[in-house]
């Protein structure tokens, strides 16, 4: 088994997914590398930001209920 099933945090699997999505999406929008990196970085930042905010909000709601 490559990925040990015993103990792992599912959140560690989010960054590779976000990076791949950002890079591929940006590459499909632009041809110039500087623009691809810039757009990918911005998108990565936004996706992770939204994920953190959503998780924080859901945790907050969850602890209040």
């Amino acid at each position: 088994m490559i990925f040990g099933a015993a103990q792992f945090q599912v959140y560690w699997f989010v960054p590779p997914l976000v990076v791949a999505i950002s890079l591929v999406y940006s590459a499909s929008r632009h041809e110039a590398w500087s623009r691809i990196w810039h757009h990918a970085f911005k998108l990565c930042y936004w996706i992770i930001g939204i994920l953190i905010l959503t998780t924080a909000f859901l945790l907050l709601v969850n602890t209040q209920v």
Partner: peptide, 9 residues
């Protein structure tokens, strides 16, 4: 189709 913002770039 090529990149979306090619002309803009």
């Amino acid at each position: 189709e090529g990149p979306a913002y090619d002309a803009l770039d």
